[in-house]
Amino acid sequence: MSLELLVEAVVSGILLGGFYAAVSLGLSVAFGLLDVPHIAHPTLLVVGAYATYALAQLGIDPIAAGFMLMPAFFVIGVGLYRFYHALFERRGGDIALRGLAFFFGIAFIIEVVLILVFGVDQRLVEAAYIGSSVQLAGLQMPSRMLIAFALAGLLTLLLSTYLSRTFTGRAIKAVAQDQTALALMGADPVRIKQSAFGIATATCAIAGALLIIVGPVEPGMGRLYIGGTFCVAVLAGLGSMKGTLLAGLILGITESLVLTSLGTSWAPAVSFGLLLVVLAIRPSGLFGR
C-alpha cells in the first residue's frame, strides 16, 4: 500500500470512527453503565433516522431535526426503562436470556412498524452539505462525514461533562458502581437509572439523524449495527464516554484499512473480529472502569 493511500485510509477511518462513536454513545450508557442488554439500541437509531426523515419532509434541516427530537426520545427511553425495570429487574431471574429476548422482540416489532409506516424502500434526506466535500491538505473529505465527526466529538464532550460535573450525572456513575450504596445516600436508584436510560435514548435522535445524513436507511438496518455498536461499547470499557470515542476511532480506522487492502466484502467481519479479540483477551474493555 502506498503512503498516500494509507494516509487517505486512516483519515477516512477517523471520520468513520467518529460516526461509530456517535451511534454507540447511547449504548455505552445503557449497556455500559446500567447493564441493560439493550439489543434494540440500533433499531432505535433507525427510528431516529426515520423521524428525522419525516421532519425533513416538512423542510426542516436534518441536524436541527435530530436535536428537536431529543426530548421525545428521552421520554420514550424513560418509558422503555420503566417497562423493563418492572418486568425484569424487580422480578429478578435470568436477565441475560429474558432481557435479550425482550429487547429482540421490541426490535422486531419496531422494524415491522417502520415497514408498515414508511415501506421497505430506502429513504434519504437532502441538505446542502450532504453531497459536497471539502478539500483539506490535499485530501478530499465528504462534508457529511466531517459533520458526523464533529457531532460525535460534541456529544462525547457534553456527556462526559454531564456525567462528571452534574449531580444526576454523578449519581448515574454511582448507580453503575454500587446501587445499594446510592440508595443509602438517599437517592432513588430506579429514578436515576430511568433518566440515564432516557439520556441514552435521546442520543439516538441525533445519532439517527447522522445515520440518514451519512447514507440512505431502510427499516432492517438496525441489525447491521448490532455488531458495530456493541463492539464499540465493549471495547470502550463499558461506560466511559471518552473511551467510546477512542473505541469508535479504533474500529473506524481498522475497518477503513481492511477496506482499502482487502476490499469491501471483508468489512463486516472487522468489527466483530475485533470484538471477539477484545472479549477473549480483555473482557473489561480497553479503557475500563
Binding site: 442488554p37 456493541f230 467481519a269
Partner: peptide, 15 residues
C-alpha cells in the same frame, strides 16, 4: 458469562 457470551456468539455468526 451472560450477555458477553451471547454477544460473542453473534460475532462468530457474522465472521
Amino acid at each position: 458469562r451472560g450477555i458477553y457470551f451471547s454477544i460473542a456468539t453473534v460475532a462468530v455468526a457474522v465472521i
